[in-house]
Design a binder for these strands. Sequence first.
DNA 1: TCTGGGGTCCTAGGACCC
DNA 2: TCTGGGGTCCTAGGACCC
Length: 414
Amino acid sequence: MEPGPNILHADLDAFYASVEQLLDPSLLGRAIAVGGGVVLAASYEARAHGVRGGMSGWRAKQLCPNLLFVGGHFSEYQRLADEVMTIVGDFTPLVQRISIDEAFLDVSGSTHLFGSPHTIGTELRRRVRDEIGLPLSVGAARTKHLAKIASQVAKPNGLVVVDPAREREFLDPLPVGLVWGIGPVTQQRLSDRGIYTIGQLADSPSDSLEHFLGRALGSKVGALAANVDHRRVQANARAGSVGAQSALGRAFPTDELLGAVLGHLADRVAGRLRAKQRAGRTVSVRVRFAGMRSVTRSITRAEPVSATLTLTETAEELVQRALAAHPDQHTISLLAISVSNLVDQPVLQMELPILPDEPVRAGSPTGSARWAVDHSIDAVRRKFGRSAVGYAAVALSKHASVPEEFRELAEHEL
DNA sequence: TCTGGGGTCCTAGGACCC
DNA sequence: TCTGGGGTCCTAGGACCC
């Protein structure tokens, strides 16, 4: 007997914007955007005019002159999303949260308690609407991939269950962009070849697709077409990297600017690593030039890094290397630092004395002195908040186009 | 007065080892 | 005695997701 559509994908509609409409009912039915310089989220009324997340506020206003910008209640987003996830957990312990506002559920073991996947999806949506006040869309199917496509089709505020016997019938007319992993670039390449729907994609010879798309997508699409998506709903893995970035408009990469911005970013990243009791062996930087072209440089060290000053110095060296390789570029528009190859680094270990290969710079603390400084700062911040003490706390404020609270929301553990 | 911030995954080439 | 093949790690770039 065929397995039923036991995988659900639950996805809150226009999440940030819906929360704002919940908190202030006078916003219901209106075209609103959370953000200012950049649109972080748009209500469906705004989307009807073409407003999208990530769009500049200026462009959004052009498309939708009545658009109302509202400041974000960022801590409310986390709280309400967590409450929704608690309700989700009432239907099955097998929940995989994949972002603040969406999760997969495996209800195979729950149907004898709660009824069919259709019944569970209906009840879940009712409870979230009645108890929290937010619109939730749900897709149900035999695999995660299909369930996610189904929830996209269900939006806004709907439920779609894909009958396992009619999957091709469901998928074939849908646009290829609904396939997870097919973004704007791939979609353009496909449409250049006359492929617009999932059915056309499934029917085109896979070796010719691989020719211009690359194997990864070929196998992904192949798996979807052949219905062999075996990925199970599983608990969330720990993050594999920790990073921070800052857009700069157009800036000249002077030593002062680089020092201030990289110091601030390294402070954020290293502080988060220490809070997680983690450290990383690979340090990467990204420099984006005017015109959006960007380059990366990275280095993998024998010893994991979590000291702010060590990270700052490494990042500065890497950025200098990246700049030196592109002497024709005179202004930069973004700097980013990321640390990967993470290992556990319990506090006890961090108290050890010192690594022989720590770089030494005149007038700056080395080795255990760096850890002592970091830990003092961490302790003060735990007590009095981030802004109480720190490196170049104002360095980013003149460039920042999103509020600090948004960064904190984005970096929050799911 | 263009285009945020936090991530994941994949590819490809080169170094290096056996 | 002109040159194999597999595996792993590192670096750089790029697409994609929320």
